[in-house]
């Protein structure tokens, strides 16, 4: 029998309680226990960034975070960001600049870009490239993703 542990945390602005296997990672909790599937599994090893979420204001790979460690913390996923009007500019930039093709890396890419822009609102192309170096994309060649993030300058606080 797997050891369960009850945790309480804020998910996308809403407090909630969940009982999770102690060895489960946050990605699996979000997708399989809670049912939010915007956060993607790409590798399970922190090498692709598809599962990027924000916890207490910093971006991280949810596949590398024990779900129990969400206890008491503030978790934001792409679904939460989708309700965030400040992030509208970022999403719109991704759409308008052609930064989305198959779209599988996109939620993680946007979560990371949002974190990057909160920290460095005026990031230039080179710092954006470094900022998303942990997010793999196989379709776009990154250029349009970088263009989109740079274009948000000033629109997101």
């Amino acid at each position: 029998m797997l050891l369960k542990h009850d945790i309480e945390f804020t998910l996308n602005g809403v407090k909630r309680q969940v009982s999770v296997d102690v060895t489960t990672n946050t990605l699996a909790m979000l997708r399989d226990v809670i049912g939010l599937t915007g956060t993607k599994y790409g590798c399970g090893e922190g090498e692709c960034g598809a599962c990027t979420i924000q916890v207490d204001g910093v971006s991280l790979n949810s596949c590398l975070m024990f779900a129990v460690d969400c206890d008491g913390r503030d978790v934001t996923t792409i679904e939460g960001l989708a309700n965030d009007s400040k992030a509208d500019a970022l999403r719109e930039a991704f759409v308008e600049h052609g930064a989305v093709q198959c779209g599988f890396c996109t939620p993680g890419m946007i979560m990371q870009a949002d974190h990057l822009l909160h920290k460095h609102p005026h990031a230039d192309a080179d710092s954006v490239k470094r900022g998303i170096e942990g997010n793999l994309c196989r379709c776009t060649g990154y250029k349009k993703i970088v263009d989109a993030i740079v274009a948000v300058d000033g629109a997101v606080k």
Partner: peptide, 21 residues
Amino acid sequence: KRIPKMDAPEKASGRTRYIHD
């Protein structure tokens, strides 16, 4: 013209349901 991909808004919001979802 530069026409944005029609399914991009859904994908950028994490709403698109891939087979995994």
